[in-house]
């Protein structure tokens, strides 16, 4: 992916996270914990499970629609995200060839089930992680982390990083544009040029850190990054958390797809 595209992608996601909807207003800790619970439940399914995973799409579907996040954006992000899981998963159908009868007339390799399972888990986990950040602004996530007991030094590191990603990405983008403008195809993009760009960028970054340090000192910085925000959990947060937990429990231990399918079969077939 080109640099500009990646940059605008983060920027877009970041802007979405500052919207004001029911999902955005939920306590960040609740969102973080329910998302983690969700992810944990999804990956806890054994490797051949396929049908039981479908009900879990309810969670991202609700975040997506109630949070007013455009579907195409998430789909696109999921599609282009690192292909590692798929790359590893595709070996399953090739290696695990035990036949499984799916329909009266159709037999497939068991590996296809485990591959489909990986694929579904992949879509569920990636889209949920993206939706979490699309509906919770990053500083809020950080405050939640601090309140949940993450080391304060790490949290202020995250906050600093978030603040300067955009500044540095723009600076880098200008340098990369200058490189591409004069590199006519391949030549300028080799490692040697990259190293020199990195060197320059590195020193500029060090100098920027010094200027920021001056600005911090000018406002009384003596080593601690102060914070003031505290979130309190409202009733709607508890209701949200409660319903998520109940759904997760039901979806994990009752094969919802299966039951519905049988019901449908008995009615119509």
């Amino acid at each position: 992916m080109a640099f500009d595209e990646q940059y605008y992608n983060i920027g877009y996601l970041d802007r979405l996270s500052y919207a004001d909807t029911f999902v955005h207003r939920l306590d960040p800790r609740i969102k973080l914990i329910t998302s983690l619970l969700f992810l944990f439940t999804v990956i806890s399914f054994p490797k051949y499970e396929v049908a039981a995973l479908f009900p879990f799409f309810l969670f991202p579907a609700i975040l997506l629609t109630a949070g007013e996040i455009p579907l195409w954006f998430i789909v696109k992000k999921v599609a282009i995200v690192s292909p590692f899981a798929i790359f590893i998963g595709i070996f399953n159908p090739l290696l695990d060839t035990a036949p499984v009868a799916v329909l009266p007339a159709l037999t497939v390799a068991a590996g296809w089930f485990s591959f489909a399972s990986i694929l579904l888990k992949f879509i569920l986990t990636v889209s949920t992680a993206l939706l979490l950040i699309a509906t919770t602004s990053f500083p809020t996530v950080c405050h939640a982390l601090r309140q949940l007991g993450m080391p304060s030094l790490f949290v202020s590191q995250l906050l600093f990083l978030y603040r300067y990603i955009f500044v540095l990405a723009e600076e880098t983008m200008r340098i990369v544009r200058a490189r591409d403008m004069r590199s006519f195809g391949r030549k300028g993009t080799d490692v040697k040029v990259f190293v020199r760009i990195m060197g320059v960028l590195f020193l500029r970054t060090v100098e920027r850190a010094e200027r920021i340090y001056f600005a911090m000192l000018a406002r009384g910085f003596q080593g601690d990054m102060p914070t003031g925000k505290h979130y309190s959990i409202a009733t709607r947060d508890m209701i949200f958390a409660g319903s998520v937990v109940v759904c997760l429990f039901v979806f994990r231990f009752y094969p919802v797809s299966e039951i519905l399918g049988r019901f449908f079969q008995e009615l119509f077939l």
Partner: peptide, 27 residues
């Protein structure tokens, strides 16, 4: 920690983040 390191760490993270977004050709 030296207080000066706190902002340095922050922008260094952003530096690495930005650097990872640049592709280059592997020889």
């Amino acid at each position: 920690i030296d207080n000066k390191t706190i902002p340095l760490m922050g922008v260094m993270g952003a530096f690495i983040f930005a650097a990872q977004m640049i592709n280059f050709t592997i020889p």
